[in-house]
Design a protein around this nucleic acid. Structure first.
Length: 123
RNA sequence: GAAGCGAGCCGAGCGGACGCGGAGCGGAGAGAAAUCCGCUUCGAGGAAAGUCCGGACACCAAAGGGCAGGGCGGUGGGUAACGCCCACCCGGCGAAAGCCGCGGGAAAGUGCCGCAGAAAAGAUACGGCCGAUGGCGCGGCCACACGUGAGUCGCGUACAGGCAAAGGUGAAAUGGUGCGGUAAGAGCGCACCGGCGUCGUGGUGACACGGCGGCCAGGCAAACCCCGCCCGGUGCAAGGCCAAGCAGGACCGUCGACCCGGCUCGGCGAGGUCCAGGUAGGUCGCAGGUGCGCUUCGGCGCCCCGAAGGGCUUCGGCCCGACGAGAUAGAUGUCCGCUCGCGACAGGAUCCGGCUUACAGGCUCGCUGUCGGA
RNA sequence: CGGGGAGUGGCGCAGUCUGGUAGCGCACUCGGCUGGGGGCCGAGCGGUCGCAGGUUCAAAUCCUGUCUCCCCGA
């Protein structure tokens, strides 16, 4: 299992590349963008999270980000190498976390992943 | 006791596992970089919030004068400063403790006061009231020259004149109520109340109390304005350093451009504007300081007390003590066990002092006496 | 993080500076012209002026607080 530290997107250009050239799949609670990187040596998976002010205040938004990251890296077995991902939270996700916690977010994220690149990890 | 009022404080705790951000140490690798591993340690709030004020700090050459512009507004203190705080005064509310108030000037000027109403700011006209005085008319008495008036009385008229109470409008009508007074009336006179001026006393002062005078003065300044005090602009995306990268051209300018927020005086002194092209990375700023707590000393204020003295609050000084967040797509959770009242509002982004707004529940101290009990 | 702007019928806007009547266009309803539709003409319906306090006799307008939305700045 790869460690989860600091595998983050941090530049505006990196986000723009994923939005523009990647593919997207949405559920009621989130949108998952997927972008396969080419021509780079690094094989790691990276994640960016976007939570707008519609979701809530600073406390709520930090909590959504934490929960999304935790759910994402708990599914790291399924992730293909050399890909960048961006998860955009939709405004209903606050209620989901309050009712079902991390498990509900993980389920919603799995739905999006199924639609994006199918079942289990491809060798 | 219930209710109410004021001030201050807390705002989940403990243990375990897995994680997150910073710093330090050790290790892997080759030696200091990058990366990875292990250990230690630190890691959000009373409002961190809204960004409404005030400062620190930084740059604009220095941060200069005048005008314009903006802010504040009872008095006296406090403060680095404030639009903040404290005490007091005045006005309003409450039975009280207390609470609330952008609370200077309307006899410097300008402006506004819709509808209604006679009238909305010099009050005057309008509609009215009066019949004391004069005039006119009629009648009685009186006089005589017998149809006149120069006298007198009564009635009428409203011509001269007197009056400003009543005018059921309005948010507001040149003071209110009562008595006297008069032809009718009127602060015309008197009593009480309200307002103004002046003098005296008390107070640092805002003001308060008392005496006297006289009835002259509508409201709005969160309308312009006047008076007093204060204010240069921009904001850490300020700004300094380093690295990477590109391509130049046109015009203006030391005969003084650009700039100093606007105008002007004055000043600075070499670059500026536009088009095209390139890059939007790192690091410093970035945290121990006008801040907090305790004791003591001193000062302002308020309260208790016969006095000596004491209590509260606030500011300043000395000593002592505590306090290690500094991120940069941006760190505090998840799961399990236990306790209780089952946990609200909500998280740094340069820092500090205030204000305002949001908030489950709880604690401490002081006060009031509409209600109940003894 | 800092700086600015806007909330008025269903929609887009005036009115706010200078306080007393909330107005315009489109849309909607009814009637007329037409064989019918469109179009034109006439009449009508519809607004807590984002919210809460304050000043004033009187507030969409002036003042304070608060909520929402939008724009700009390395």
């Amino acid at each position: 299992m790869p460690p989860s530290k600091r595998r983050r997107l941090s530049r505006s250009g990196e986000f723009d590349r994923v939005y523009r050239d990647g593919s997207s799949h949405a559920t009621r609670y989130l949108v998952l963008y997927t972008f396969p990187r080419r021509d780079e040596e690094r094989e790691e998976v990276r994640l960016g999270v976007s939570v707008s002010r519609k979701v809530g205040g600073a406390v709520d938004r930090n909590k959504v980000k934490r929960t999304l990251r935790e759910a994402f890296w708990s599914l790291s077995d399924r992730l293909p190498d050399k890909h960048d991902f961006v998860i955009v939270a939709r405004s209903d996700i606050g209620g989901l976390i309050e009712k079902e916690g991390t498990a509900g977010v993980t389920k919603s994220l799995e739905e999006a992943m199924d639609a994006s690149f199918g079942g289990g990890r491809s060798t």
